[in-house]
Design a protein around this nucleic acid. Sequence first.
DNA 1: CACCTAAAGACCTATATAGGACTTATATTG
DNA 2: CAATATAAGTCCTATATAGGTCTTTAGGTG
Lengths: 234, 234
Amino acid sequence: MTEPIYLRLANRIVQRIEAGELRPGAQLPSEAKLAELESVSLGTVQRSLNHLAESGVLVRRHGRGTFVASAETPAQDLKHFRFLDQDGETILPVTSTLLAIEHVGPAGPWAAFLGAAPFFVLLRRLLDVNGEFKVYSELTLAGPRFEALLALDPKAFDGVLIRDYLTQHFNCPTLSVEQRMTVGPLPPRVCPLVEVPRETSGLHWELMARSYRDQPAIYQRVYLPPSDRPLQII
Amino acid sequence: MTEPIYLRLANRIVQRIEAGELRPGAQLPSEAKLAELESVSLGTVQRSLNHLAESGVLVRRHGRGTFVASAETPAQDLKHFRFLDQDGETILPVTSTLLAIEHVGPAGPWAAFLGAAPFFVLLRRLLDVNGEFKVYSELTLAGPRFEALLALDPKAFDGVLIRDYLTQHFNCPTLSVEQRMTVGPLPPRVCPLVEVPRETSGLHWELMARSYRDQPAIYQRVYLPPSDRPLQII
DNA sequence: CACCTAAAGACCTATATAGGACTTATATTG
DNA sequence: CAATATAAGTCCTATATAGGTCTTTAGGTG
């Protein structure tokens, strides 16, 4: 056997999602229907669906059905980060401003992760954490696929979570994340944005997110100034 | 049905591991034997074992058997961290020195996570990353259970990974980790240890690890000085 | 002795079947 | 009309069964 049936079925379902045939939030046929349509047994369908649910592609709801994971139905504790109060309990509110959407060339640190592309789209964002301090973030996406972003007005993104937008409009949910970080002086261009003196040390945080089929999708660099508010990664 | 059979069986297996009846690395009875012993069907046993394998408690090996996860058989990419070269490829070698093993009182920041205990055991460690910089770490464990550590000679830990030691000798593997971090001036007592001037900013990294049954087991604080070597969390 | 073969034992995949549990919509009833 | 009961549709659990694949060991063969 080259590849188990349940994985073949799982891959076919992912293909349909990628193709836009199944949109985020859409309901899949029932287990029994899928078994009949695909000519496999019920148990095998269940195995496929459970497999995809574990990797965050689908959401299963007892008595209701199986759905494509969307922003409203985060499958896993979708890889996110947030800032806490000192007590470690309350989550601080964050507002984001999209500064610019830029067309950038094929060279850059993102190419190592995202792969070669004719150009890239770079989103510059400034996050405000509870009015206490600011965080600067650069998010890069591969060119052709996300080209439509270039035409958009940055103001339209006020209060919108980028990840949710990419999930909704580009069928590009964040399913897994790799991360690296260093501590050191923040780049000169970043210091004024996060309102700290030049040469202030801060956190350089690099996030590399993958979507369906483990395809590299988002390369993100986040710069945090010093603060006593704990950053929690979940 | 109050609790599914496969979960009851899984919990029973975890209990046996916790009780020391099944040691890390030990082989479990075969699926068929377990099915007969526990008077359940083969499929249910498989579901139990797969469930425990996914949460990192067991390791399944095709054609060989099912084993209790141990330091040599890391089930998942066990939550670890490491330092990389700038290229992000090569892993820098780290050597650790155990500075002290201390008996500390019931109060402290660890109590919030580990819970109340008559006392705690605190391990002070200094890591040397490729001879380039040092990292200071404090690891706290709940009193009674880990009391035996107090009698040990810190020198005996040279070159030993603490997590592996706890897995082997205390049946206490790290199965999940929560983490928080802040950037700011390193505490005065830490600066000389990591060989930086006072008031140097660095990373305060708090790790809270759980073992079997999601029981809080390890509270760790790590202090990193500035460096251009990326810290990778996996 | 070295190499190949066969068998045993383990996990892995797949099917067919049965009933339970949860959710929602519909129909019944007071 | 409101509360309840029913039914349909869905996922969830469990069993029994069959054959496959992988690893190791034991024999056989040159």
